[in-house]
Protein backbone atom coordinates (compact mmCIF):
# COMPACT_ATOMS: atom_id res chain seq x y z
CA UNK A 1 0.00 0.00 0.00
CA UNK A 2 2.75 2.38 0.94
CA UNK A 3 4.54 1.84 -2.33
CA UNK A 4 1.57 3.15 -4.25
CA UNK A 5 1.56 6.40 -2.29
CA UNK A 6 5.17 7.45 -1.98
CA UNK A 7 6.65 8.44 -5.30
CA UNK A 8 9.13 11.13 -4.40
CA UNK A 9 12.73 10.98 -5.44
CA UNK A 10 14.93 13.46 -3.64
CA UNK A 11 18.04 13.90 -5.76
CA UNK A 12 21.47 13.63 -4.15
CA UNK A 13 23.60 16.76 -3.95
CA UNK A 14 27.21 16.77 -5.08
CA UNK A 15 28.70 19.93 -3.65
CA UNK A 16 27.90 22.49 -1.02
CA UNK A 17 26.74 24.86 -3.71
CA UNK A 18 24.05 22.42 -4.84
CA UNK A 19 22.55 22.33 -1.35
CA UNK A 20 19.09 23.95 -1.47
CA UNK A 21 19.06 27.45 -0.06
CA UNK A 22 15.63 27.16 1.55
CA UNK A 23 15.67 26.73 5.30
CA UNK A 24 13.00 24.94 7.31
CA UNK A 25 14.73 25.26 10.65
CA UNK A 26 14.80 28.95 11.51
CA UNK A 27 17.08 30.94 13.81
CA UNK A 28 16.15 32.21 17.24
CA UNK A 29 16.12 28.82 18.94
CA UNK A 30 17.59 28.72 22.42
CA UNK A 31 20.22 26.04 22.03
CA UNK A 32 23.73 26.55 23.41
CA UNK A 33 26.32 28.41 21.37
CA UNK A 34 28.01 25.98 19.02
CA UNK A 35 25.30 23.32 19.36
CA UNK A 36 26.01 20.20 17.30
CA UNK A 37 22.47 18.80 17.28
CA UNK A 38 21.05 22.16 16.10
CA UNK A 39 23.38 22.12 13.09
CA UNK A 40 22.33 18.58 12.34
CA UNK A 41 18.65 19.59 12.55
CA UNK A 42 19.20 22.42 10.12
CA UNK A 43 20.87 20.10 7.60
CA UNK A 44 18.23 17.39 7.93
CA UNK A 45 15.43 19.96 7.46
CA UNK A 46 17.18 21.33 4.38
CA UNK A 47 17.59 17.84 2.94
CA UNK A 48 14.00 16.79 3.60
CA UNK A 49 12.34 19.86 2.12
CA UNK A 50 8.90 21.36 2.68
CA UNK A 51 6.77 18.21 2.58
CA UNK A 52 7.91 17.01 5.96
CA UNK A 53 6.52 16.34 9.41
CA UNK A 54 8.98 16.40 12.29
CA UNK A 55 8.30 14.62 15.54
CA UNK A 56 10.32 15.70 18.51
CA UNK A 57 10.56 13.33 21.45
CA UNK A 58 11.66 15.17 24.58
CA UNK A 59 15.32 16.07 24.52
CA UNK A 60 17.52 19.05 23.75
CA UNK A 61 16.03 19.44 20.30
CA UNK A 62 12.57 19.72 21.82
CA UNK A 63 13.21 21.68 25.02
CA UNK A 64 15.70 24.22 23.71
CA UNK A 65 13.91 24.73 20.39
CA UNK A 66 10.28 24.85 21.38
CA UNK A 67 10.35 27.20 24.29
CA UNK A 68 7.08 28.69 25.44
CA UNK A 69 4.74 29.08 22.47
CA UNK A 70 7.36 29.55 19.80
CA UNK A 71 9.30 27.10 17.67
CA UNK A 72 11.93 27.40 14.94
CA UNK A 73 10.24 24.96 12.56
CA UNK A 74 8.88 26.12 9.22
CA UNK A 75 7.30 22.69 8.64
CA UNK A 76 4.72 20.83 10.77
CA UNK A 77 6.22 19.63 14.02
CA UNK A 78 4.84 17.82 17.01
CA UNK A 79 6.18 17.05 20.41
CA UNK A 80 5.97 13.46 21.63
CA UNK A 81 6.93 12.02 24.97
CA UNK A 82 10.47 10.76 25.17
CA UNK A 83 9.20 7.18 25.26
CA UNK A 84 6.92 7.22 22.26
CA UNK A 85 8.48 8.93 19.24
CA UNK A 86 8.11 5.73 17.25
CA UNK A 87 4.51 5.19 18.29
CA UNK A 88 3.44 8.69 17.26
CA UNK A 89 5.22 8.31 13.93
CA UNK A 90 3.38 5.03 13.38
CA UNK A 91 0.05 6.70 14.08
CA UNK A 92 0.67 9.66 11.80
CA UNK A 93 1.86 7.42 9.00
CA UNK A 94 -1.14 5.13 9.28
CA UNK A 95 -3.55 8.07 9.44
CA UNK A 96 -2.00 9.70 6.38
CA UNK A 97 -2.27 6.49 4.39
CA UNK A 98 -5.94 6.17 5.20
CA UNK A 99 -6.70 9.83 4.47
CA UNK A 100 -4.96 9.62 1.12
CA UNK A 101 -6.66 6.34 0.22
CA UNK A 102 -10.08 7.73 1.04
CA UNK A 103 -9.39 10.91 -0.86
CA UNK A 104 -9.81 13.10 2.23
CA UNK A 105 -6.40 14.56 1.69
CA UNK A 106 -4.62 15.46 -1.50
CA UNK A 107 -1.00 15.55 -2.45
CA UNK A 108 2.15 13.63 -1.81
CA UNK A 109 2.70 11.39 1.19
CA UNK A 110 4.88 13.42 3.57
CA UNK A 111 8.33 12.63 4.91
CA UNK A 112 7.79 11.62 8.51
CA UNK A 113 10.95 12.16 10.54
CA UNK A 114 11.38 11.37 14.22
CA UNK A 115 14.18 13.54 15.59
CA UNK A 116 15.09 11.71 18.76
CA UNK A 117 18.15 12.03 20.93
CA UNK A 118 20.13 9.03 22.07
CA UNK A 119 17.79 8.73 25.06
CA UNK A 120 14.64 9.04 22.96
CA UNK A 121 15.81 6.38 20.54
CA UNK A 122 17.94 3.65 22.05
CA UNK A 123 17.33 4.11 25.75
CA UNK A 124 13.96 5.37 27.00
CA UNK A 125 12.40 5.42 23.53
CA UNK A 126 13.66 2.02 22.42
CA UNK A 127 10.43 0.06 22.63
CA UNK A 128 8.41 2.49 20.51
CA UNK A 129 11.21 2.83 17.96
CA UNK A 130 11.61 -0.90 17.72
CA UNK A 131 7.87 -1.42 17.36
CA UNK A 132 7.65 1.16 14.57
CA UNK A 133 10.44 -0.56 12.70
CA UNK A 134 9.07 -4.02 13.34
CA UNK A 135 5.68 -3.07 11.91
CA UNK A 136 7.29 -1.46 8.89
CA UNK A 137 5.89 2.06 9.06
CA UNK A 138 7.14 4.43 6.41
CA UNK A 139 9.11 6.87 8.54
CA UNK A 140 12.69 7.94 9.10
CA UNK A 141 13.92 7.59 12.66
CA UNK A 142 16.93 9.77 13.39
CA UNK A 143 19.03 9.33 16.49
CA UNK A 144 21.07 12.50 16.94
CA UNK A 145 23.72 11.28 19.27
CA UNK A 146 25.30 13.74 21.68
CA UNK A 147 26.23 10.84 23.94
CA UNK A 148 24.44 12.05 27.09
CA UNK A 149 21.16 13.42 28.45
CA UNK A 150 22.44 16.93 27.86
CA UNK A 151 19.21 18.81 28.38
CA UNK A 152 18.81 17.80 32.01
CA UNK A 153 22.42 18.30 33.05
CA UNK A 154 24.61 15.73 31.24
CA UNK A 155 23.54 12.40 32.71
CA UNK A 156 24.99 9.23 31.25
CA UNK A 157 23.13 7.50 28.41
CA UNK A 158 23.80 4.11 26.81
CA UNK A 159 25.81 5.77 24.05
CA UNK A 160 28.16 7.68 26.39
CA UNK A 161 31.62 6.25 25.68
CA UNK A 162 33.67 4.34 28.22
CA UNK A 163 35.40 6.75 30.58
CA UNK A 164 32.97 9.62 30.04
CA UNK A 165 32.55 11.97 32.98
CA UNK A 166 28.84 12.73 33.41
CA UNK A 167 26.81 13.77 36.44
CA UNK A 168 25.78 10.13 36.91
CA UNK A 169 29.28 8.72 36.33
CA UNK A 170 31.64 11.09 38.12
CA UNK A 171 35.22 9.86 38.40
CA UNK A 172 36.45 9.43 41.96
CA UNK A 173 38.67 7.29 44.11
CA UNK A 174 36.38 4.24 43.91
CA UNK A 175 35.72 4.41 40.16
CA UNK A 176 38.59 6.41 38.66
CA UNK A 177 37.47 6.09 35.02
CA UNK A 178 33.98 7.53 35.43
CA UNK A 179 31.78 5.45 33.15
CA UNK A 180 32.80 1.80 33.25
CA UNK A 181 30.48 0.43 30.57
CA UNK A 182 31.09 0.46 26.85
CA UNK A 183 28.39 2.05 24.69
CA UNK A 184 25.49 0.52 22.80
CA UNK A 185 25.71 0.26 19.04
CA UNK A 186 22.39 1.68 17.78
CA UNK A 187 22.73 0.96 14.03
CA UNK A 188 23.65 -2.68 14.68
CA UNK A 189 20.73 -2.90 17.09
CA UNK A 190 18.39 -1.81 14.30
CA UNK A 191 20.02 -3.88 11.56
CA UNK A 192 20.19 -7.00 13.66
CA UNK A 193 16.61 -7.27 14.78
CA UNK A 194 14.31 -5.44 12.38
CA UNK A 195 13.69 -7.28 9.10
CA UNK A 196 11.43 -4.50 7.75
CA UNK A 197 14.25 -1.96 7.83
CA UNK A 198 16.00 -1.64 4.48
CA UNK A 199 18.31 1.31 5.02
CA UNK A 200 20.46 2.27 8.00
CA UNK A 201 23.33 4.73 8.00
CA UNK A 202 25.60 6.66 10.30
CA UNK A 203 26.46 10.28 9.58
CA UNK A 204 28.27 13.18 11.15
CA UNK A 205 28.01 16.94 11.11
CA UNK A 206 31.64 17.02 10.01
CA UNK A 207 30.53 15.89 6.54
CA UNK A 208 27.35 17.86 5.76
CA UNK A 209 26.95 16.88 2.11
CA UNK A 210 27.21 13.20 3.01
CA UNK A 211 24.67 13.79 5.80
CA UNK A 212 22.22 15.47 3.42
CA UNK A 213 22.58 12.65 0.90
CA UNK A 214 22.02 9.98 3.51
CA UNK A 215 18.87 11.74 4.73
CA UNK A 216 17.58 11.94 1.17
CA UNK A 217 18.40 8.31 0.45
CA UNK A 218 16.63 7.25 3.63
CA UNK A 219 13.56 9.32 2.74
CA UNK A 220 13.39 7.80 -0.75
CA UNK A 221 13.17 4.31 0.72
CA UNK A 222 9.63 3.10 1.33
CA UNK A 223 9.45 1.69 4.83
CA UNK A 224 11.25 2.37 8.10
CA UNK A 225 14.79 3.71 7.96
CA UNK A 226 17.28 4.69 10.63
CA UNK A 227 20.03 7.28 10.76
CA UNK A 228 22.54 7.60 13.57
CA UNK A 229 24.08 11.08 13.50
CA UNK A 230 27.08 12.09 15.56
CA UNK A 231 26.58 15.54 17.11
CA UNK A 232 29.25 16.81 19.51
CA UNK A 233 27.87 18.80 22.44
CA UNK A 234 30.23 21.61 23.59
CA UNK A 235 28.61 21.89 26.99
CA UNK A 236 28.31 18.23 27.82
CA UNK A 237 31.67 17.17 26.47
CA UNK A 238 33.58 20.22 27.63
CA UNK A 239 35.27 21.66 24.58
CA UNK A 240 35.44 25.07 22.97
CA UNK A 241 32.27 25.99 21.05
CA UNK A 242 34.22 26.79 17.90
CA UNK A 243 35.62 23.25 17.74
CA UNK A 244 32.38 21.31 17.30
CA UNK A 245 33.09 20.30 13.72
CA UNK A 246 36.74 19.56 14.45
CA UNK A 247 35.76 17.23 17.29
CA UNK A 248 33.26 15.48 15.02
CA UNK A 249 35.94 15.01 12.35
CA UNK A 250 38.48 13.71 14.87
CA UNK A 251 35.95 11.13 16.06
CA UNK A 252 35.95 9.69 12.54
CA UNK A 253 39.69 9.95 12.09
CA UNK A 254 40.37 8.09 15.33
CA UNK A 255 37.76 5.39 14.76
CA UNK A 256 35.59 6.45 17.69
CA UNK A 257 32.84 7.01 15.11
CA UNK A 258 32.45 4.92 11.96
CA UNK A 259 30.71 6.19 8.87
CA UNK A 260 28.84 3.57 6.91
CA UNK A 261 25.63 2.77 5.16
CA UNK A 262 23.76 -0.50 5.30
CA UNK A 263 21.63 -0.74 2.22
CA UNK A 264 19.47 -3.84 2.35
CA UNK A 265 22.21 -6.16 3.50
CA UNK A 266 25.14 -4.44 1.84
CA UNK A 267 27.68 -2.37 3.76
CA UNK A 268 29.35 0.67 2.23
CA UNK A 269 31.92 2.68 4.14
CA UNK A 270 32.67 6.38 3.84
CA UNK A 271 35.57 8.49 5.04
CA UNK A 272 37.43 5.44 6.24
CA UNK A 273 40.93 6.67 7.09
CA UNK A 274 43.84 4.63 5.72
CA UNK A 275 45.47 4.85 9.12
CA UNK A 276 43.54 5.70 12.24
CA UNK A 277 44.85 8.40 14.55
CA UNK A 278 45.33 7.39 18.20
CA UNK A 279 42.19 7.81 20.29
CA UNK A 280 44.15 10.06 22.64
CA UNK A 281 43.98 12.91 20.11
CA UNK A 282 40.20 12.85 20.24
CA UNK A 283 40.09 12.55 24.02
CA UNK A 284 42.47 15.37 24.83
CA UNK A 285 40.14 17.98 23.32
CA UNK A 286 37.36 17.12 25.73
CA UNK A 287 37.06 17.79 29.44
CA UNK A 288 34.84 14.77 29.99
CA UNK A 289 37.90 12.54 29.42
CA UNK A 290 40.40 14.74 31.25
CA UNK A 291 40.60 12.37 34.24
CA UNK A 292 41.52 9.23 32.25
CA UNK A 293 44.83 7.54 33.02
CA UNK A 294 47.02 5.82 30.41
CA UNK A 295 45.59 2.42 31.36
CA UNK A 296 42.05 3.64 30.73
CA UNK A 297 43.00 5.17 27.41
CA UNK A 298 44.67 1.90 26.40
CA UNK A 299 41.44 0.07 27.25
CA UNK A 300 39.44 2.48 25.11
CA UNK A 301 41.99 2.19 22.30
CA UNK A 302 41.69 -1.61 22.39
CA UNK A 303 37.91 -1.29 22.17
CA UNK A 304 38.17 1.02 19.16
CA UNK A 305 40.73 -1.23 17.44
CA UNK A 306 38.46 -4.23 17.86
CA UNK A 307 35.44 -2.25 16.68
CA UNK A 308 37.20 -1.06 13.56
CA UNK A 309 38.33 -4.58 12.66
CA UNK A 310 35.13 -6.35 13.59
CA UNK A 311 32.98 -4.76 10.90
CA UNK A 312 31.78 -7.06 8.11
CA UNK A 313 33.92 -7.09 4.97
CA UNK A 314 33.18 -3.76 3.33
CA UNK A 315 32.02 -3.41 -0.25
CA UNK A 316 34.34 -0.82 -1.69
CA UNK A 317 32.44 2.11 -3.11
CA UNK A 318 33.37 5.48 -4.52
CA UNK A 319 34.31 7.59 -1.53
CA UNK A 320 32.68 11.02 -1.66
CA UNK A 321 35.12 13.86 -1.46
CA UNK A 322 35.61 15.35 1.99
CA UNK A 323 34.10 18.79 2.30
Amino acid sequence: MAAAIKTQNLAPVKLIRNVPKEEYYLPGHRTCAGCGPALQYKLVAKAAGPNTIFLGPTGCMYVANASYLCTPYAVPWMHTQITNGGAVASGIEAAYKVLLRKGKREGEFPNIIVMAGDGGSVDIGLQAMSAMMYRGHDALFICYDNEAYANTGIQTSPTTPYGGNTTFTPPGSAIPEGKTLFPKDPPQLVIGAHPAVKYVATASIAYPVDLINKVRKALNVVGPTFLHIHCPCPKGWGFDEAKTVEVARLAIETGMWNMYEWDNGEYRYQFKPKKYKPVREYLKLQNRFAHLSDAHIAKLQAFVDAKVKAKPVPVEAAVPKAN
Partner: peptide, 30 residues
Amino acid sequence: LGSSIWNDLSVARSGSLPSFNRERCIHCAM
Protein backbone atom coordinates in the same frame (compact mmCIF):
# COMPACT_ATOMS: atom_id res chain seq x y z
CA LEU B 1 3.86 33.63 19.59
CA GLY B 2 4.69 31.29 16.77
CA SER B 3 8.12 31.50 15.29
CA SER B 4 11.36 31.87 17.18
CA ILE B 5 12.64 34.49 14.71
CA TRP B 6 11.43 37.26 17.03
CA ASN B 7 13.74 36.08 19.78
CA ASP B 8 16.84 38.16 20.38
CA LEU B 9 19.74 35.94 21.42
CA SER B 10 22.48 38.57 21.64
CA VAL B 11 22.97 37.94 25.35
CA ALA B 12 24.17 34.41 24.58
CA ARG B 13 27.47 35.76 23.24
CA SER B 14 30.27 35.59 25.75
CA GLY B 15 32.41 38.54 24.77
CA SER B 16 33.30 38.01 21.13
CA LEU B 17 31.57 37.97 17.78
CA PRO B 18 32.55 37.14 14.20
CA SER B 19 33.23 40.24 12.14
CA PHE B 20 32.70 39.89 8.41
CA ASN B 21 34.96 41.36 5.76
CA ARG B 22 33.21 41.30 2.41
CA GLU B 23 36.31 42.12 0.37
CA ARG B 24 37.98 38.91 1.45
CA CYS B 25 34.92 36.69 1.15
CA ILE B 26 34.91 34.08 -1.60
CA HIS B 27 31.24 33.15 -0.96
CA CYS B 28 32.06 29.47 -0.57
CA ALA B 29 29.33 28.91 2.04
CA MET B 30 31.60 26.96 4.37
